[in-house]
């Protein structure tokens, strides 16, 4: 059975199902990130590299 499956690894329906599952997962990720958690939580994380306030040769 495995040999038959491997020799005919061009099942378009399977590919379509995989694509749809992928799109659902991706859409959920986007929803969680952009519409569930507040932006402020992520903005705070973006500041981590700047917390040491290292002198930047007069960079603004």
């Amino acid at each position: 059975m495995k040999q038959a499956a491997l020799s005919y690894f061009t099942n378009n329906e399977l590919s379509l199902i995989a694509l749809i599952l992928f799109l659902i997962a991706f859409s959920f990720l986007i929803f969680r990130l952009y519409f569930w958690d507040p932006k402020s939580k992520y903005d705070k994380l973006a500041q981590i590299p700047l917390e040491d306030k290292e002198a930047t040769d007069g960079r603004r």
């Binding site: 990720l29 986007i30 990130l33 952009y34 932006k39 992520y42 973006a46 590299p49 290292e54």
Partner: peptide, 25 residues
């Protein structure tokens, strides 16, 4: 890039949420 550009311009990365999508994708 995600470290040295913010350090060089003294600004946080444009969108941390975009970086999450960027990374996993």
């Amino acid at each position: 890039m995600y470290y040295y550009i913010p350090k060089a311009v003294n600004r946080p990365v444009y969108s941390y949420r975009l970086s999450i999508v960027h990374f996993w994708s």
